[in-house]
């Protein structure tokens, strides 16, 4: 290598770093450092209402307490149930939507736009919307089902299981189209000649779907699953607006529990332990998914 070439190299490296550095700096300051700080706080005992306690270093005490906390256990179960149910439903609905908007037809642009609208609606609005639809007196659901037989009206959100179901439903409604877009991307990658060949071989529509579409769609499906799982674990707005965790803690998710302990109760140490625990769970799940997806998402060498 000549000297000038080496010089260009190092200049390029410098430029490369100068390009990455600002983004990295901001990310580290506003995301990585806070997580580290949260972890540090979670090793302390801090109670805003009890300043005389000071901030005492207690090691892993908060985590041990977390393991034995019945409310946290309930919140974990609700969160896991929410993640499982909502991701599965979103993937199913997303796949259906993707198959529809992949077809060629007149007005497809409009249909695609219509489907994207729930995704674009602020979650807070969507939450109020679904809360209103399932209102016990003025709700659309009761009107649709029972018309003017008002004595049959059901107070949906007063039943723990149904309230949980409605939160899931609102999430599915809101985010299925995002899953659909990711799946659509996968569909567009499947070459048409594969289907033509299968048709020549006499394969029916179901067989083509089962043996061509699904297997080739696997990476896209897994990717959608990864995104949706990460988001579902972090559900907060829906619960905050629709149910505040009730009735009977049926919609108490970990994020909301973390919010309550950190910000309403002022238990800084314990609340931090809750949120760090959520982070660790998401991290573990994501690593499993990423392994399943196989190739790294961002890294692809230049051809």
């Amino acid at each position: 290598m000549t000297r000038s070439a080496r010089l260009t190299m190092s200049r390029e490296r410098l430029a490369a770093w100068s390009m990455v550095a600002p983004a990295l700096l901001l990310t580290v300051t506003f995301a990585l450092y806070p997580v580290a700080d949260s972890f540090w706080l979670s090793l302390h005992h801090i109670f805003i209402g009890l300043p005389q306690l000071g901030s005492q270093f207690v090691g892993l005490d908060n985590y041990l307490a977390l393991l034995q906390d019945p409310v946290a256990r309930q919140a974990l179960l609700v969160t896991l149930g929410f993640v499982l149910l909502s991701t599965v439903l979103e993937l199913a609905c997303g796949l259906m939507i993707a198959l529809v908007i992949h077809e060629q037809f007149r007005g497809r642009g409009l249909v695609r736009a219509a489907i994207l609208i729930p995704w674009a609606i602020p979650t807070v609005v969507a939450s109020q919307l679904w809360r209103y639809i399932f209102n016990d007196q003025y709700g659309f659901a009761n009107l649709l089902l029972f018309g003017d037989r008002v004595t049959d009206y059901i107070p949906w959100l007063a039943y723990p299981t149904i309230a949980f179901g409605i939160v899931v439903l609102a999430d599915v409604w809101k985010t299925s189209s995002f899953a659909a877009l990711l799946i659509l991307a996968g569909l567009q990658l499947i070459p048409d000649d594969l289907y033509d060949a299968a048709r020549v071989d006499g394969a029916g529509a179901w067989q083509r779907f089962r043996h061509i579409t699904l297997p080739l769609l696997k990476p896209a499906l897994l990717l959608a699953l990864l995104f949706r799982t990460m988001d579902a674990f972090r559900v907060f707005d829906l619960v905050f607006v629709m149910t505040q965790g009730g009735p009977g803690d049926a919609t108490q998710v970990l994020q909301f529990y973390g919010y309550q302990t950190l910000f309403t109760e002022g238990r800084i140490g314990y609340g931090s332990a809750v949120s760090v625990a959520v982070f660790l769970m998401i991290l573990a799940l994501s690593l499993i998914y990423l392994r399943a997806i196989g190739s790294s998402l961002l890294e692809r060498k230049r051809p």
Binding site: D136, Q137, P155, L157, A158, Y159, P247
Partner: peptide, 8 residues
């Protein structure tokens, strides 16, 4: 005598 809806 209280509607279940009172839970909300």
């Amino acid at each position: 005598i209280t509607p279940r809806a009172a839970l909300t």
